[in-house]
Design a protein around this nucleic acid. Structure first.
Lengths: 117, 117
DNA sequence: GAATCATATGTCCATATCGGAATATGTCAA
DNA sequence: TTGACATATTCCGATATGGACATATGATTC
């Protein structure tokens, strides 16, 4: 098996920075492809491809407006990500004041210091 | 260019479900590889490879303990993800009470309803 | 030193990616 | 109809994946 498809879920879709940029732009409101192409300074086909991925994961919705296609953000699939990460919030917020942990870390630093074995 | 490496950043590292499972397990405390292999019911080399990715992104730290290697969670790199997603929280929390939005959505549903063109 | 346990690395395969270039589809305007 | 504009799709190449399998490295015990 190879790596999971980018369309497998929001996690994979959002792993690509350009796709995050697109969502960031759409967070400011509905926009036609054209507009995104201009702002991202990316080739039009690329933008269309990224939008396809986002569509398949449900992160954006489309609406036809004449010859333009208006894309709109749909953040719902991001909830899964948020729900997962939020449980780790303490892991970077916490103060390391437990003595045993601190000692363990100091010990690691010494060990890793690479004297000539 | 191909897809970004899984070791490019936390976003990519965490896109793989098994890697998330590993972090979830480590959230419960330091664990040797062995332990993870048993709990994940995954081939040992696979677990080692996933751990490598997590290590390269800084999501886990290792410590040698005799012939075992104790892996420990380091959530800090997840902050970037949290910071990004949290701005979208309202996008799935919000009540759709703006009339224009509601109408737009209804219109889309009709349009998409696929009568014969 | 030899055997054993714990972990890491290397090779192979099938698959899917992102990007670029060219081209197809679809809509409006003259 | 013809042409211009907006967007999507297809084909290509380079790359990296996750998994299976075999093997290497490293520490411990006998």
């Amino acid at each position: 098996m190879a790596r999971a498809a980018t369309t497998a879920d929001a996690f994979n879709a959002v792993a690509e920075p350009r796709r995050r940029q697109i969502l960031d732009l759409l967070a400011g409101g509905e926009r036609p492809v054209n507009d995104l192409v201009a702002r991202l300074e990316l080739a039009q086909p690329l933008v269309s491809k990224h939008l396809r991925v986002l569509r398949e994961v449900g992160l954006v919705d489309v609406r036809d407006e004449g010859r333009q296609r208006m894309y709109r953000l749909n953040g719902r699939p991001l909830k899964a990500i948020h729900d997962w990460v939020k449980d780790y919030e303490q892991s970077w917020t916490q103060r390391f004041d437990r003595l045993d942990v601190v000692l363990e870390q100091l010990k690691d630093m010494e060990d890793g210091d690479g004297s000539d074995k």
